[in-house]
Computed example of a mutant assay.
Amino acid sequence: MHRINETNDEDSCFVNHSNKKEKNMKGLKRLAGVLGVIVLLCGMLTGCSGKKLYSEEELTQIHDVIGTVEQMTKEFQNVITDSLPTLLGDMSSSSDELMDFISTRKYDPNKKIIALTFDDGPSTDETNGTSDLLDLLEQYDSKATFFCLGNRLNDESAPLLKRMVELGCEIGNHSYDHTQLTRLDAQGVRDQIDKTNELIKQYSGKACRLVRPPYGDANNDIVPANVSQPFIMWDVDTLDWKNKNTASVISLVEKYKEQDWDGAVILMHDIHSTTIEACKTIIPELVNDGYQLVTISELAYLKGVKLEPGKSYWGIAEKSTVTDY
């Protein structure tokens, strides 16, 4: 019975896909026709515009051309409005996912940018958990990237993922259960990454584009053959996972902040209450010092870096190291 339902679903999907492609083709043909007419009319107008004086017949013709061009412009806009979403929907990524690459935020080019990243979460703790961190980011109009573990993604943590998306934060893949990927065979690696990707999509509504391997451990055996996303490492490890001390994390961040921190990727963990407490000092200080806190994808875009599958990025800015497997 299950296989019969599965086959029917596939047939239905095939029919819907075929109808969508047919609709797209009609939209493209319609668009081509509109463009052709506009080009023709503009050519006619150009042909008349070489004279200083026009006959009454030519003036009437020009008036008609202008009116027709205006009508064609409206038609062109309608075609774009009607066809573009379905054309994008026929691609491998949805239109929403593609538009994620185009940020609507305003950036001050005179300010430095930093990407705060948080691993191993999300934490559903009611006090000093991921929810408190999201409150803080929202308060200071800041964004961050959360590299989540698949085994923490469930109905309880789902509201956190949805809120991350609503606030413009980014969700990355940190494996399913923090297994060191280089100790697994190819199928094991795919299971860790694919299962977590599916859970991120299920609970956040967004496809995952980034991976951070546990312990920052990756090699040619697992990238790019088994992972279709870029591996994102870091510039600065706050050692919050080791010290679990609020003052220590704040002190380390303030130390590095004295250097040229523009474009830095900072590693922290939102499962430690001491880290959340430290962020209550770190985030306001960074913002007040003129830093803009952005996601990994925003950082890459603003620095002109294209993140590619099969590459491991120890940071994003020019000074960082990129490993091409």
Rank of each mutant, 00 (worst) to 15 (best):
H2D: 09
N5F: 14
N8Y: 13
S12F: 12
F14V: 14
V15F: 15
N16T: 07
S18V: 13
N19R: 09
K21S: 02
N24R: 10
L28Q: 05
K29G: 01
V37S: 11
L40Y: 10
L41F: 04
L41H: 10
K51T: 09
K51D: 11
E56P: 07
E57C: 03
E58F: 12
Q71A: 15
F76R: 03
Q77Y: 14
Q77M: 05
I80V: 10
I80M: 13
D82H: 06
L87I: 05
G89N: 08
M91Y: 11
S93P: 06
S93K: 10
S93C: 14
R105C: 02
Y107C: 02
D108W: 00
N110W: 01
N110E: 06
N110M: 07
K111G: 03
K112N: 06
A115D: 03
P122E: 03
T127R: 03
G129D: 09
G129N: 09
T130P: 10
L133K: 09
D135L: 02
E138G: 01
C148P: 00
C148S: 11
R152K: 09
L153M: 11
E156S: 05
S157V: 14
L160S: 06
L161K: 05
K162L: 02
G172F: 11
S175F: 05
D177H: 07
T179Q: 12
D185G: 11
V189G: 07
D191T: 04
I193K: 10
I193Q: 03
D194W: 02
T196A: 01
N197P: 01
E198I: 10
G205I: 06
K206G: 05
R209L: 09
L210C: 06
D217M: 12
A218V: 14
D221Q: 13
P224T: 03
N226R: 15
Q229H: 15
Q229E: 10
D235L: 08
T238C: 15
D240S: 13
W241P: 01
N245A: 03
T246D: 13
E254R: 13
E258W: 00
D260I: 01
A264F: 13
I266G: 02
I266P: 01
D270V: 08
D270P: 11
I271Y: 04
A278P: 05
A278N: 14
P284E: 09
E285I: 10
E285T: 12
D289Q: 00
Q292K: 03
V294Y: 01
L299T: 01
L299Q: 02
V305I: 14
P309I: 11
Y313F: 09
Y313E: 04
W314F: 15
W314M: 12
G315P: 14
G315E: 01
D324Y: 08
Y325L: 02
